[in-house]
Amino acid sequence: MAFVEVLLLGFLVACALTAVLHRNTMITILTYMGFSVVMSVIWMLLQAPDLAITEAAVGAGVSTVLYFLTLQKIRELKESEDAEEERRRKAGEEGQK
């Protein structure tokens, strides 16, 4: 049992370090999701099944979805900006001709 505890707690720390230090935001979010899943296993070890259910539904489900949606939204904004810039540039070139 002690071995399992050490494994889980070590995994938590490793996940936290990776999430904070990795440069890719996508990997940060995925690692945070893993953190939440392991956290819900630890709630079971600490005899708190209410927390385990809530953490698995909220931490690994809802907040990860929200982070992903933020990334997607930002990427869409950037793409629409780029398209607009391209359109203006082309219009400018044609105007010069």
Binding site: P49, D50, A52, I53, T54, A57, V58, G61, V62
Partner: peptide, 9 residues
């Protein structure tokens, strides 16, 4: 175990 909040999520 559970309750309104986790079920709703």
């Amino acid at each position: 175990p559970g309750g309104g909040f986790s079920g709703g999520s």
